[in-house]
Design a protein around this nucleic acid. Structure first.
Lengths: 205, 205
DNA sequence: CTTGAAAATGAACAAACGTTCATTTACTTT
DNA sequence: AAAGTAAATGAACGTTTGTTCATTTTCAAG
């Protein structure tokens, strides 16, 4: 009883090598799923990328579906954690915070983002619900910002939930066309979209 | 020579029955692709929906890929034709025209719309290019509206192409969450999004 | 009624799929 | 060095896949 909390988790059975292989599987699956779609990717292809025989994958993930679930849930929780950890100047407007954060994060993690709204339909019901719950939590952040700002008269809008989806849809589409090294820098993109979002909810003068 | 234009196309070899079956194949494939994704749908499932043996499908489409290409190209050309045919009050602002048209059309043809941006990656290169060309043509409509309005001082925006993608992304996402019979009617949706779009490109006062 | 082409059948093909499993290899702890 | 577990192998399993094809059915035109 007394030892339960202090248990050092005896490193012997943690399987350091296994952890590392699991990470390589995740990485390979992420790339493949993003490029070709979950249904079009075979376990054999993932295994080949990792440099291992197909059967070895099952030492780390019970099924192909579990790899997808793992990737999507990890993405959502990392997204939410990144928001919590984000630090912006104290005086920055909350909407500006959200827009800048969203753009930056989504341009950094294009594969994860792509999978997370493209492969939703390939999730089995339970896994779908789990991801959907996290997604709603993320949307809730912006909805709260809009509602509070609306009450304080800093923004003007009709439907916070609808406006949330509109803004997020607008921002999330950026990685689908933005290419590094093009005419517009990431900062340019931030300013353009910030301008659009701000004006869209600007109070009538 | 003289008969070329008036040729009655001898109904004998038009295959009336075949045309009808092909239409049923398109319809079944559309529903299935939208619900489960191109890669997850088998020719056997489509055949079963149509009420025919798998082999019979190949009397109408050379491959499964051709069914997808057919659906997507048809959608794009119908979308563009519908825009050309759309009639709005002469005095209506062009942006308002576009927003209302886009929302109405996309809420009417949810399956086609869903497939057309979800299954792009499952198109072979040639087919992808063909669809992409049509998509750019459609985006060009809004870009032209924004550029002209911007020159005339009716709108204010930084980047017509970027703003085009932002507005279209925002509008196209509607069918992914809108449900008939909910709290908001289609008219409500139109007004809310029209408001957002207008304000986003409103001239500074 | 005959003819001929279009359409549908039903069985078959090779290939690829996710997953399992007895066995061997690798590695950490006693 | 011995023991024991985790990881990887390599072959195999039963299904399912897109597609083909010889054959039969359907059906309108002559």
């Amino acid at each position: 009883m007394a030892s339960a909390a202090a248990k050092p988790q005896s490193r012997s059975r943690t399987g350091a090598k296994g952890q590392e292989t699991a990470a390589r599987v995740r990485k390979a699956a992420l790339k493949r799923f993003a490029a070709n779609g979950y249904a079009a990717v075979s376990m054999r292809e993932i295994a080949a990328d990792v440099g291992v025989q197909p059967g070895a994958l099952y030492n780390h993930f019970p099924t192909k579906q579990d790899i997808l679930k793992d990737l999507m849930l990890a993405h959502m929780s990392e997204l939410l954690a990144a928001w919590d950890a984000a630090d912006f100047p104290a005086e920055m407007d909350p909407l500006e915070r959200f827009v800048r954060f969203h753009i930056r994060y989504h341009l950094e993690r294009t594969d994860e983002v792509f999978i997370s709204y493209m492969e939703l339909r390939n999730l089995e019901p339970d896994n779908f619900d789990a991801v959907e719950t996290e997604r709603r939590r993320y949307e809730g952040i912006l909805t709260d910002i809009l509602e509070k700002g609306s009450r304080q008269g800093r923004y003007s809008l009709r439907e916070p939930r609808v406006t949330t989806r509109a803004i997020i849809a607008m921002l999330t589409a950026i990685p689908s066309w933005y290419r590094e090294g093009g005419r517009l820098s990431r900062q340019d993109i931030e300013e353009i979209y910030l301008d659009l979002a701000r004006k869209a909810v600007a109070p009538e003068e």
